[in-house]
């Protein structure tokens, strides 16, 4: 039997690294789109709605505007999950005021759930402001951090909460 090697990501958060495996059987189109924009770098921001999660906003020509590939409600969240998340401009009142001007217009990001408890659905449904309308609010689990997740990487993620934004690069791991 011939099996394809699973493609992997390398995440480098301010010097601490972790690898992740793409869910190509589950969300092939999303994985392919993500793969094609790598590497992506930016300043990661800690979540303030969904627990132990950091986000990397996609900017400029790295912005992805993908359709909902798998049912939203299948995106239940576990530690280590990485989601693609998209929210159209002007959909959410107020929420992104702390972000840069760009993200107040449109949000395209990777959501990396680095610790327990992870969002457990909270971020995926975001009840105050998240109508699940096609091409307006999209969430898709496309990868997961390989286990065991390095403790140093998890601690660096957590430190973003206390120390502020951290540089993050997501690249192909080949």
């Amino acid at each position: 039997m011939i099996t394809m090697a699973r493609r992997k990501l390398l995440l480098n958060l301010d010097g601490e690294t972790a690898t992740a495996s793409l869910f190509e059987e589950y969300a092939p189109k999303t994985c392919e789109a993500v793969w094609n924009i790598l590497p992506v770098s930016g300043r990661s921001i800690h979540a303030n709605w969904s627990g132990r999660e950091i986000m990397l906003h996609l900017e400029g020509d790295k912005i992805l505007r993908l359709p909902q590939e798998v049912p939203v409600h299948s995106n239940f969240i576990y530690e280590g999950d990485i989601h693609y998340f998209y929210r159209a401009s002007s959909l959410s009142r107020g929420k992104q005021l702390a972000y840069s001007a760009q993200f107040q217009r449109e949000l395209s990001e990777f959501a990396i759930f680095y610790g327990e408890p992870a969002g457990e659905g909270v971020s995926a449904y975001d009840p105050p402001r998240a109508p699940h309308l096609d091409k307006v609010h999209v969430v898709c689990k496309f990868a997961a951090l390989d286990r065991p997740i390095p403790e140093a990487f998890k601690m660096k993620c957590e430190s973003a909460r206390h120390e502020g934004l951290k540089p993050l690069t997501v690249s192909r791991y080949e």
Partner: peptide
């Protein structure tokens, strides 16, 4: 003391 941003409750 050190005040931290909540990670579950939004602007809190």
């Amino acid at each position: 003391g050190k005040v931290i941003h909540d990670i579950w409750s939004g602007p809190q």
